[in-house]
Nucleic acid binder design. Structure first.
Ligand SMILES: [Mn+2]
Ligand SMILES: [Mn+2]
Ligand SMILES: [Mn+2]
Ligand SMILES: [Mn+2]
Lengths: 216, 216
DNA sequence: TAATAAATTTAGACAAACCTAAATATTTAT
DNA sequence: ATAAATATTTAGGTTTGTCTAAATTTATTA
């Protein structure tokens, strides 16, 4: 199988690929908290294993084999996050670091049984889709609250920023997955937004609106 | 914190300490599937961290700090084994290797909540005691079936050999934790034992009798 | 287009955890 | 009490994944 470091690189390449076709050495170095030269070393190794397509100076893409491994790690990460929240009562802002370790537990039989034990959840505590055992999942079409018009409404289904501080802020405001919100007004000065949720109104900054995702 | 290798050495020293006061380099090499020279390297490192007492050529003992870490890893191992059997329906012979990985998940908060989730189990699927969050546990006084007299009885409470093949054999014979057995007879030729269990009799070899533990 | 800046790779090291082979210490047997 | 056998440590390497500093390639800008 693959080492822990290899798995983390593949997962990071996968995540970065969602925004850019080719993933750069520096993007990976930033995300993995390491140096560009270390990334280059690893990219050569992953290319040797044909898990990525690598042309020096041109960035990388995952091969089908690499993507399969990456998706499997993400499946494990999200199932363990779901477990931690639903079964062990952790808060949604507490589970990511634990899942970063747990996603590397190798047994697929274990993860399939965990999936069944929790009755095949479709989304993790942050609204991200959980791939099934074949690696299939549909990413629902989300847009940031900041992208919608005044007097339209939507349901909170995800977050762009996964940091504890952001998640804790949302929790405190009651802005959690599944809540229905309506944009009442947009302040022209700083484009902050006035939302209606259940029977109260609240104001969120543009920054927050950009990182809170809804379906319409 | 400590590396995975360090944790495995501490755990192994702990287990070997139950039989011998001082644990030797070769004992560790055999248990950890490595070479004596590698063990020596690690013993120096653990001694530097004051997790073991090490005198060259004289073997090692755990310090209080080292024992605390070892017991915590064993707590995690056994709780995860319990989880795998009780919640995910694995067989008792299938869980050890998975638990070998899971015992290194670092969060103690996680393991304490897992403990609570399962209602504070006292014994793992193999009958081994699960240390509580303070590292306390009592090892019940077990003896091998081979040590008891004809016409005495006992309750199966543990195994000395944890190999899949032995566990599978016991499972097939119905010789599982909690079963009450009586020794009906001992064959003089090979000292194999005739047992009475529920309403049937069965015969086990001396080898099996040595590795099956009971309370009287 | 040529210079400059930014991104990336290469070169050379290092720590962790292993290894083999050789040296040394301890134990056991004569 | 020696000699032989066994156990342990030391010496010198290897692999993985990291680092800094220097060289090189690509992108930007004047
Ligand atoms: Mn996460
Ligand atoms: Mn998540
Ligand atoms: Mn076990
Ligand atoms: Mn066990």
């Amino acid at each position: 199988m693959n080492t822990l470091a290899e798995e983390n690189y593949l997962k990071s390449i996968y995540h970065l690929s969602l925004n850019d076709e080719n993933v750069s050495t520096n993007q990976l170095a930033a995300l993995l908290n390491t140096k560009a030269s270390s990334v280059t070393d690893m990219l050569k190794k992953l290319a040797d294993k044909t898990l990525i397509n690598y042309t020096p100076y041109q960035g990388v893409t995952l091969t089908a084999a690499g993507e399969k491994i990456a998706v499997n790690i993400i499946r494990k990460h999200r199932l363990w996050e779901f477990f931690l929240v639903e079964k062990l009562s952790f808060k949604w802002d507490e589970v990511h670091e634990m899942a970063e370790e747990m996603e590397h537990i190798s047994s697929n039989e274990l993860i399939d049984r965990l999936d069944k034990f929790m009755d095949y959840p479709k989304y993790d505590p942050h609204g991200d889709p959980i791939p099934d055992s074949d690696g299939k999942f549909k990413l629902h079409d989300l847009k940031p609250v900041s992208a919608i018009e005044v007097n339209t409404c939507g349901v909170i289904c995800g977050v762009r920023d996964h940091s504890s501080s952001f998640l804790q802020y949302l929790e405190k405001q009651g802005l959690t997955i599944g809540k229905k919100i309506t944009v009442n007004d947009i302040i022209e000065f700083d484009r902050s937004m006035i939302l209606q949720m259940e029977n109260k109104t609240l104001q969120i900054s543009r920054e927050v609106a950009n990182n809170l995702l809804i379906t319409i």
